Computed example of a mutant assay.
Amino acid sequence: MIELKGISKIFGNTRAVNQVSFKVAEKETLVLLGTSGCGKTTTLKMINRLIEPDAGQILINGEDITSHDPDVLRKGIGYVMQNIGLFPHYTIAENIALIPRLLKWNKEKIKIRTQELIQKLHLPENTLSMYPHELSGGQQQRVGLARALVTDPSVLLMDEPFGALDNVTRTSIQKEFKALEELKRKTIVMVTHDVQEAFELADRICLMDKGEVVQIGTPKELLYQPVNDFAKEFLAGQRLALEFKVVNIQDIWPYLSKEIMQGKGGQSADLSVWEAMELLRSNNRSELLITGHNKESKVINFDQLTSGFNEFQNAQVYE
């Protein structure tokens, strides 16, 4: 869907991006992760030509993006920025309708699509007649997402989209983001410096440092197969919390109780260890019924869950 081939960008004496290459598959979410100044935002902005590369080539659907007028290109790519960028003197409805109006959509089509999106994003209908300053940070972020999605683009670029939100609101919006059916049809490239956010939302992560790609892989690959010391040390401080979130019940299945239950139902073994712990905690349950990929079921408690997780961890260390 998206391919970068040897992209470079120089600002003065600084090489902000150096020979960056990667591919993003259709309907995949790739997160560009790294410290401030590593080149991730510059890389993102070159995909929709907000910044022009000095070298290399970018393809979307096999076509070189330089073959398109930049304005036409951007109208076909959703873009969500950190500061949301809503126009303060426009109502929410007017903010969402900006691109559809440029594309000459009729008023009825704009109205139907706008109402569809605010329902999906859990915004009350009276929001449409309000102005940005009348909304909370979380509501403004949802509006920014609605504006990026309104024309149903196949590609969505997101630059620190939740960076301005407080931690509680941020966690809530991330959960909505993951669950939103509308986004599961998109090819998404997202920038963040938040490791937990990257691991929560990414199918794959592109770890960057000093304008270069250090490693690209799934969250599990970055945790268990770091390519060098930088990749290992970048995640070291949060490693245990990240492991709880990327390791699922199916991964630790061989280390759980050998007692097999008959019948169907229960939670899927695709549940992460962290999610299973949350279910045990929040619902005051002593046990969970889990159904594995082979359709066998096991009943596990908190102790079995942590013990199985520890055995899995040890096996990774020794392999």
Rank of each mutant, 00 (worst) to 15 (best):
K9D: 03
Q225V: 06
E259N: 15
F234A: 14
E197P: 11
N126A: 02
P88N: 10
Y90M: 15
E28N: 13
K210T: 10
K107A: 10
G76C: 05
Y318S: 15
I99T: 05
E52N: 08
M277W: 00
L165Q: 12
I84M: 00
E197A: 11
A231S: 12
Q140K: 09
R142N: 14
G56W: 11
N228W: 06
Y255G: 08
A269P: 14
I188N: 07
I92P: 07
W274H: 03
N95H: 01
T187F: 05
V247P: 05
V317W: 02
E221L: 04
M208K: 06
W253P: 00
G144P: 10
L103N: 11
N167G: 05
R15E: 01
D194K: 02
A241V: 08
L50H: 03
V155E: 04
T169S: 13
S307H: 14
R185H: 14
L32W: 11
H293R: 15
S172K: 12
K104Q: 13
I84E: 01
I77Y: 03
L288S: 08
E160L: 09
L156F: 10
R15S: 10
K175V: 05
Q267S: 04
L121I: 09
N83G: 11
N248M: 01
I92A: 03
I60M: 03
K40F: 07
F87I: 09
K75Q: 08
E116Q: 07
G37R: 10
V273R: 03
A55G: 10
F199S: 06
L123H: 10
S21K: 08
F177P: 00
Q215W: 05
G211Q: 06
K210L: 14
V273H: 04
E63M: 13
G138S: 04
T114N: 00
Q139T: 14
C206F: 00
I110T: 04
S282G: 15
K45N: 15
T169C: 00
E200W: 04
V150F: 00
M208R: 12
Y255R: 13
P153M: 09
E182P: 08
E233S: 15
L157G: 05
V20L: 09
G237W: 03
L98W: 00
S67C: 12
K40T: 08
K45L: 12
L121P: 02
S268V: 01
L183P: 07
K232I: 07
L128K: 06
S286K: 15
L289R: 15
P132G: 04
Q215C: 12
V72Y: 00
K175E: 02
G144V: 14
F22E: 08
H193M: 11
K264D: 15
D64Q: 05
F11Y: 14
E176N: 13
V317P: 03
R49W: 00
F177S: 01
L207G: 13
K220V: 03
L256R: 00
E63K: 12
